[in-house]
């Protein structure tokens, strides 16, 4: 039994290894931070348990179907009235239950862990995330700046994302750093992620939110604290301010390029706070925003993520 376990584990790992060798990025299986790492371990463990199930069923299936074909030579063992077997049925009720327990315990532990700061000894950096049709807005309350469709975070430091959405719901996902969470109108969700090392990672909108949903990919740039501070400084000194009017313009349906702003209106922080307070109250009378029908946008420019290819933080 033990032997089988280790060999299955070996098979899993070598298959994954082979597939990774093809040279492509497989961020979910190449975690770049503690959150993704925990999920990766859980995924491996579940793949391992499930492969055990698959192997057992496939072997049994192959043997039975081959052995008991009607065209076999000797059909003396044919037993058409067999009703069942308590013992066997008990066995294959109990074994799945054990497997489920073996999966449920680490699942529960990890699920609880992921609600918390992955590196409690370090103070998390806070980023406010807003999804809109079809762009991502990131506010950095500690530094007072704003970026659109690009996310900069300090590496080796937990980041706490406080998230909401303008209009349609979305889901914020950086596969290399960890799993996703929804962004919802009038509500906030929070998510901890952390990048171990500097690098550029793929950021995804995971939940369909209308016409140009596919254009909501963004780069996540993790830099060490010094570089990050330099970037903040640069944004502060060279980028324009974001006014409330501009913000209201920005959240209308459209596809926009990467942008940075040296400051953002105070109202946005208040709004986020209000969402947080109101989560369960619901007596919101937020003003109806007239969602302009999206104007025809120039979609002729192809998306290209090849810029990220050179940047392999794994060897």
């Amino acid at each position: 039994m033990k032997h089988m376990k280790t060999s299955i584990k070996l098979i899993v790992l070598s298959v994954i290894f082979l597939l990774l060798l093809t040279g492509c990025d497989v961020p979910v299986l190449q975690p770049q931070g503690p959150v993704a790492e925990q999920q990766y371990h859980l995924i491996l463990w579940s793949i391992f348990l499930m492969l055990f199930v698959i192997v057992v069923v496939f072997v049994l299936f192959g043997v039975i179907v081959f052995k008991y074909r009607a065209s076999r030579k000797n059909t003396d063992d044919y037993d058409p009235e067999k009703e069942g077997s308590r013992k066997l049925e008990f066995t294959w009720t109990i074994i799945p239950i054990i497997i489920v327990i073996m999966l449920a315990i680490p699942m529960t532990i990890t699920t609880y862990d992921l609600e918390k700061n992955p590196s409690p000894e370090k103070k998390p950096y806070v980023v406010n995330v807003t999804s809109a049709q079809w762009k991502w807005l990131f506010s950095y309350p500690e530094d007072g700046i704003e970026s659109v469709n690009v996310l900069h975070v300090p590496a080796d430091r937990p980041v706490k994302f406080v998230m909401t959405s303008e209009g349609a719901m979305n889901s914020f996902w950086i596969p290399a750093l960890g799993g996703q969470k929804y962004t919802m109108n009038n509500m906030t969700t929070k998510l901890y992620l952390e990048a171990d090392k500097p690098g550029t990672y793929l950021g995804k909108a995971a939940n369909f939110n209308g016409k140009y949903f596919a254009h909501m990919n963004f780069n996540v740039i993790a830099q060490d604290q010094k570089d990050f501070n330099n970037w903040v400084k640069k944004v502060k000194s060279t980028s324009p301010k974001l006014t409330m009017d501009q913000y209201n313009q920005l959240i209308k349906p459209s596809v926009v390029k990467v942008k940075t702003y040296s400051s953002y209106p105070k109202e946005l922080d208040e709004k986020m706070k209000k969402n947080m307070d109101m989560m369960n109250m619901g007596n919101s009378k937020s003003k109806e925003k007239d969602q302009d029908k999206d104007k025809d946008m120039d979609m002729s420019k192809d998306m290209d993520m090849s810029g990220m290819k050179g940047d392999k933080s794994h060897e």
Binding site: L202, F213, A214, N217, M305, M308
Partner: peptide
């Protein structure tokens, strides 16, 4: 899915393999 491809996306960028 492990590579990060999301559902309901009408197209995807090149360069991700």
């Amino acid at each position: 899915g492990f590579m990060g491809m999301t559902r309901r996306t009408y197209t995807y960028p090149s360069g991700l393999g």
